[in-house]
Design a protein around this nucleic acid. Structure first.
Lengths: 239, 239
DNA sequence: CGCGTTGTTGAAAGTGATCAATGTCGGTGG
DNA sequence: CCACCGACATTGATCACTTTCAACAACGCG
């Protein structure tokens, strides 16, 4: 079993952040100031972030897969995007919608108050560039996701969900095909905008077609990724 | 009838762009260089942008309502976002999806090659900030749209479409309730991920409920915006 | 072992898509 | 001015798919 060391200290997380998102030539003073503004939050599995909802935040996902969800009036979640160790995102303050970050598995987050970064940005364009890059990446993924949500059948959604999970969770077995979904059917259903029953039926259908195998409740083996991709439809893996 | 003067020259469009998106204190040299990189494109009603699909572009919508669409394999459009006079957006090169800008009514676009802007960005952080601001705004709207698309019924989609159109097209009559949709039912259907027939039925239904009136093929009178908003559901107007 | 949670399966109902026919508007040419 | 044409819109009937409601099975845990 693979064992990924979680980032446990602010400094570890920050170093990871700097290595990933700050150019090598970034001025030491900037790095120093940034470090002072960072705070580390550990988010246990399935737990929702609880930051100050009146402020925007820049969040670096130091470790662990997470999802950005929108909460509707009924409190049910609608997935907006997935993030993984190394990704950076803007978590907007509560406006028309309330957004939260939810840990799919235990995650560590490095959090910056967006407002506090502003003075730094003025002096250090690198920071601005970094944020712009992250925002643009998020925009691209969100647009792709939007298209995906538009007109897709349950089968297409489930198939492409499995494929995108495979990319993410290379936490796979040696064969690179078996993945462990750390999510209940309900969570998957919320992600895909379907019901639990439909998700379950799609799993059964794909199993009957011989495209996947489900040795246990949480494990899925992609027996035939190629034909699975065919089921995922035109706009295949929502990257 | 209101008569909005379209931006016809590059300079007119550029001035509008600078006024809207560049801070007053922007260095004259920067403005000058930017102007040299801008090119103007007039997009007739319903026409699709035809820029170099291998390059990213920064587009300023100088005038006219436009929509950003994703094209699927079948060539049918899936709406991603609306833009209006004054908005700025990143039109990404063709990747997993192909995006196009489509004029809802005749529009003028000021187009920059994103690559060509890069050297300018390095020297002028203002430019970077501007792009970051636009990207972030686009991200927020797209996220909102994604949530909207998630699990919404045909009625909700049509009702909130009408409401958001009202916000946009204040090209309304004196009463502020009658709007002229410069779109066919097919275009509306594509926007909402529905079929023409379903859209038509929803119009009929809302008309029967007394929420709207349809004096002509293109005109819609929102007789009862409040109850219409109720039909639009929890995540009302997709801003 | 029993119980609660989670997952699967079946039957019925609801919703939108598809297919097909008809209706309406706007323009063109007689 | 009117008849006709073609594009667009509406309406109806049917079909496919997803949800909903309900029962049951499997697993994990005390």
């Amino acid at each position: 079993m693979r064992f990924e060391r979680a980032a446990v200290t602010v400094n570890e997380a920050f170093d990871r952040f700097a290595g990933q998102h700050l150019p090598a030539g970034a001025p030491a003073a900037l790095v120093h100031q940034l470090r002072a503004l960072a705070s580390l939050h550990s988010l246990p599995r399935r737990q929702m972030s609880r930051f100050d909802v009146t402020r925007d935040h820049l969040v670096f996902v130091a470790s662990g897969p997470t999802k950005l969800v929108a909460l509707d009036a009924a409190g049910s979640e609608q997935i907006v995007a997935f993030q993984f160790g190394g990704d950076c995102l803007i978590l907007p303050r509560e406006g028309l919608h309330a957004y939260r970050l939810v840990a799919i598995r235990a995650a560590s987050l490095l959090v910056f108050d967006a407002e506090a970064l502003r003075p730094l940005e003025q002096r250090a364009p690198v920071l601005n560039e970094m944020i712009a890059r992250c925002t643009l990446a998020a925009l691209q993924r969100t647009r792709a996701n939007l298209v995906a949500m538009g007109r897709r059948s349950a089968t297409e959604r489930v198939a492409s969900f499995l494929l995108s999970m495979r990319e993410i969770e290379q936490v796979a077995q040696a064969d690179g095909r078996t993945l462990t979904l750390e999510m209940t059917r309900k969570e998957i259903a919320d992600c895909l905008g379907l019901t639990v029953e439909t998700v379950s039926r799609q799993f059964s259908k794909l199993r009957d077609l011989g495209l996947i195998a489900t040795p246990s409740r949480t494990q899925v083996r992609l027996s035939d990724p190629v034909r699975l991709a065919a089921q995922a439809g035109a706009f295949a893996p929502a990257a």
